[in-house]
Amino acid sequence: MEPRQIRTFTERYLANHGCHIIESSPAHLVTQLSIQADKDLLNRPFYWMYVERCNLEPQPARLCLIFDPEKCPEDVKGEYLFYGSPRFSRFLSSALQHGQFVRLYQQPSGRNPYMYVSKPYTPWLAVNFKISYICDQKKDRISYLGINLQNGHILEPFYQTIRQLSWTSKLPAQRHTIEPRLSIAEAVGELEYYLQDQLENEDQTWAEEAMERLDLELNQLDSYYPDETKISAELSQEKKQRRRETIWQYHPRVEVSVINAGLFYVEQLPPSLEN
């Protein structure tokens, strides 16, 4: 993340978590945190325990964040917020924690021409998967999937499609939702099949190479330790441990976790993207 992105991210986070900006310059800002943001960002559980136990008036802190220490006026006492700083990591994990699950309805774009007829909304399940490819090294990608709960159709990337639309948490007037044919569990199963298939058909050179390295290392261990029959219990133990460590270090695998998910009730997706 670039410093500019850090700043916009932080400001959006604060605005969305009930924090007020008291002071702001290009190099810094001062904010009055909300209770929840204070708990998430400042790591002072004892204070909060104390306040809650004793029923005191909670006083969430003010936080002065500096985005550009070079240009910051000298009398501003605050903390430098940069990508990689522990505080910014807290912003990130708080954002992750509070943006997990949504249920949203598409905001109608114009007036409904058929004033007296309710229009149907199609339910979609959106799931953003984080896919990690792991051996002795690691890389990740995000898979933005969506599945139509009416007909099982899967759309990728779904998030990029719905991002351009407006969303509201209340069903707008003169709209109704269609009863889904797929249950959530079934839909998730479908998405997992889809991913599994995709993963198995991907280029797996990285995994093959990791496997080769693993075999090579294991062979080297075998040639280092004398024949199983001839070695002491202690040495045999050591050899087993070394083998475990080697497998731990190299064995290739894929781990899929879910970043967030949502039910999206859609009137119509942008035409260019629905096939």
Partner: peptide, 22 residues
């Protein structure tokens, strides 16, 4: 439920933490 803005923030936080290549 969370809201749309927070949903987007969470996704951006995840994107920031992605390690794109080995």
């Amino acid at each position: 439920w969370s809201n749309w803005e927070r949903f987007q923030l969470a996704l951006e936080a995840a994107e920031a933490q992605i390690v794109p290549t080995f």
